[in-house]
Nucleic acid binder design. Structure first.
Lengths: 208, 208
DNA sequence: TTGTCAATTGTCAGCCACTGTCACTAATCT
DNA sequence: AGATTAGTGACAGTGGCTGACAATTGACAA
């Protein structure tokens, strides 16, 4: 934080972010207007839009960090791990680093509430899914490079990532509608669900 | 079509739908205003919103039919098929029935253009993904019932569906960005990608 | 320190999606 | 034919978002 100007800007941005998340999670996303957020920080609506391109964008600021952390997590996996293994490890032990990174910006509890809000607000859920797709594309390219194949001719990178993402989405949803919002819960759920994929696919579920 | 009133309504709805799709696919979704659509049919903007809850809704009218058709397709699969097999069959031979159902409402070519527009327009893509999630939930419940398990305690139905949906999404995307928009192309691509899932997951891709 | 330049902000005007209200017209029913 | 009801247009208003311009405030050099 060099100059006074930069510090002021940072403060305004932080204030807007916090006011927005606080209002969103208490009143609801749709029920909160951009004017409300701006008023809470005592700046004009126009200023809000100079810091955030859209109302949606504020809602995803923290998510954005977690997405980036995951991508880096995958990139950092040792080369000898098979693709699926690398993804699994990146998620399972990515939660801790995530926890730290997030809590430096907002209270973790606020992040969790925001996550549930996203899952339960149709417009936000839609945006979340689209963002996830973009992340998937990045991951697919990373895997392709790791394994020395071409993303555009070999479908395997995108397929693995899509399958993995599907499982994660089911996991997230289960977690966000459950009762235990702890890190342990999500970690355990992730591991368990990933283990179930094989059996589920192979499945004759009716067997004893 | 009983009364004159009903016929008139149907005609207005059709006209709005066609005008909307035509404008969307030529000018682009965002570049088309609801006023444009209403003007093209010579009704007021207010009337447009009496037929469609939102601008988005018109864009998905045809998609909505295909989604419903797929759900019915799965429901109709013989009980002896394993879950994954049932899904695969429902998709692969669902395309033909789909083709007919769609062409009764709009030219197939318009449907294809609309599909590509959805894939390439961020807001529409987001909406599409959320809708797909709702379809996934329905399918998961159907599978659970077929196999006699409980969706809320056994994760397998949702997992299988999520994995399958992931593959289908990769397929759709590949198809929509490719050059061959024929039914044969999508059918072949679907079959091929589904076959690749096993190898991709198991994978040591670097093996000769 | 002060004057100049550049960055930040507020104000205002306007577009577009969407909603409520009310009066008017045209189809339907008796 | 007259009363009823459904469908429509006109209008006003809200909320997200953008462009333009002017006022303010910090940065930096003379």
């Amino acid at each position: 934080m060099e100059t006074l100007r930069e510090r002021k800007k940072q403060r305004t941005r932080d204030a807007l972010l916090h006011a927005a998340l606080e209002l969103f999670t208490t009143r609801g996303y749709e029920a909160t207007t951009v004017d409300d957020v701006a008023a809470a920080v005592d700046v004009s609506q126009r200023t809000f839009f100079r810091y955030f391109a859209s109302k949606e964008e504020v809602a995803f600021v923290v998510q954005h960090m977690t997405e980036a952390a995951f991508v880096e997590g995958v990139r950092a996996r040792p080369a000898h791990e098979a693709p699926m293994e690398a993804l699994r490890q990146a998620v399972v032990d990515g939660w801790d680093r995530l926890h730290e990174a997030v809590s430096a910006v907002v209270p973790v509890e606020l992040y969790l509430r925001m996550y549930q809000l996203i899952e339960s607000t149709p417009v936000l859920l839609a945006a979340h899914l689209r963002r996830s797709m973009e992340v998937e594309e990045k991951i697919a390219r990373i895997l392709a490079e790791r394994e020395g194949v071409d993303v555009d001719t070999d479908p395997r990178p995108r397929l693995v990532v899509a399958v993995f993402a599907g499982v994660i989405r089911v996991t997230e949803r289960q977690w966000s509608t459950g009762e235990d919002f702890s890190l342990e819960a999500i970690r355990e759920l992730t591991a368990r669900y990933l283990d179930q994929v094989g059996p589920a696919l192979a499945g004759d579920w009716r067997a004893p």
